Simulated scan of single mutants.
Amino acid sequence: MTFTLNRFDLTAFLQSTLAEDLGGPLGEGGKDVTSEAVIPADAIFSGVMDSRVDAVIAGLPIAEAFFRYLDPDVEIEVLVAEGEAVAAGTDIMRLKGKGRAMLTAERSALNTVQHLTGIATMTNDYVRRIEGTGCILLDTRKTIPGLRVLEKYATRMGGAQNHRMGLWDAAMIKDNHVAVAGSVDEAVRRAKEAGVEKIICEVDRIDQIEPALAAGATNLLLDNMEPATLRGAVTLIGGRVPVEASGGVTLETIREKAETGVDYISVGRLTQSAPAADIGLDFAPV
Results as ranks from 00 to 15, higher is better:
Ala191Asn: 07
Gly47Gln: 05
Ile144Met: 11
Pro61Gly: 00
Arg231Ala: 10
Asp9Cys: 10
Ala233His: 07
Ala187Cys: 12
Leu14His: 12
Trp168Arg: 04
Glu36Thr: 03
Tyr69Thr: 09
Thr235Gln: 08
Thr253Trp: 02
Gly195His: 07
Ile199Asp: 07
Lys96His: 05
Gly166Thr: 09
Gly29Pro: 04
Ser16Met: 14
Ser108Tyr: 05
Ser46Leu: 08
Ile76Phe: 01
His115Lys: 13
Asp282Ser: 11
Asp207Met: 07
Phe45Thr: 02
Met102Arg: 11
Met1Leu: 04
Thr140Gly: 13
Arg52Lys: 15
Ala41Phe: 01
Leu137Gln: 14
Glu259Asp: 14
Arg141Phe: 11
Ala228Asn: 09
Ala212Phe: 01
Arg231Trp: 03
Ala181Arg: 04
Asp125Val: 03
Met157Gly: 08
Ser108Val: 02
Ile237Tyr: 08
Leu147Ser: 00
Glu197Leu: 15
Thr218Glu: 02
Glu151Pro: 05
Ser246Val: 00
Tyr264Gln: 00
Val184Arg: 05
Val188Tyr: 07
Ile130Asp: 12
Ala120Gly: 10
Pro211Asn: 04
Gly238Val: 10
Ile265Gly: 03
Ala276Asn: 10
Val234Pro: 08
Gln272Arg: 14
Asp175Lys: 05
Gly247Arg: 06
Pro242Leu: 05
Thr218Ile: 09
Ala87Ser: 15
Ile265Pro: 01
Lys198Thr: 15
Ala109Ile: 00
Met172Gly: 03
Asp185His: 09
Ala43Gly: 09
Met225Leu: 09
Thr123Trp: 12
Ile44Asn: 08
Val249Asn: 04
Met157Cys: 15
Glu84Arg: 06
Thr123Tyr: 08
Met93Asn: 07
Ile44Thr: 14
Ala120Tyr: 12
Ile130Ser: 13
Ala87Lys: 15
Val178Lys: 04
Ser183Gly: 00
Ser266Leu: 09
Asp125Ser: 04
Ala277Thr: 15
Leu147Pro: 00
Ile199Thr: 06
Ala214His: 01
Lys31His: 13
Asp71His: 14
Leu95Pro: 00
Val38Glu: 06
Leu222Cys: 05
Glu84Gly: 06
Ala41Val: 11
Gly132Leu: 08
Ala41Glu: 12
Ala171Pro: 01
Thr229Tyr: 08
Pro40Gln: 12
Ala154Lys: 07
Gly166Phe: 09
Arg255Cys: 03
Leu270Thr: 08
Arg164Leu: 02
Arg269Ile: 11
Val286Glu: 15
Val127Asp: 03
Asp278Gln: 09
Thr4Lys: 15
Glu20Gly: 14
Thr2Asn: 05
Gly29His: 10
Tyr264Leu: 07
Ala85Val: 01
Ala58Phe: 11
Arg129Gly: 05
Asn6Gly: 03
Ile57Val: 15
Gly159Leu: 13
Pro227Leu: 04
Gln272Gly: 01
Asp175Trp: 04
Asp32Ile: 08
Ile44Ala: 11
Ala170Ile: 01
Asp207Asn: 13
Glu252Phe: 01
Ala274Val: 03
Val188His: 05
Gly166Trp: 12
Met157Val: 12
Val178Gly: 05
Asp263Gln: 04
Pro242Lys: 03
Glu256Met: 09
Glu131Thr: 04
Val203Trp: 00
Arg100Trp: 14
Ala81Phe: 02
Ala43Ser: 14
Leu251Ile: 00
Ser266Ala: 12
Leu213Phe: 00
Met93Arg: 06
Ala154Val: 00
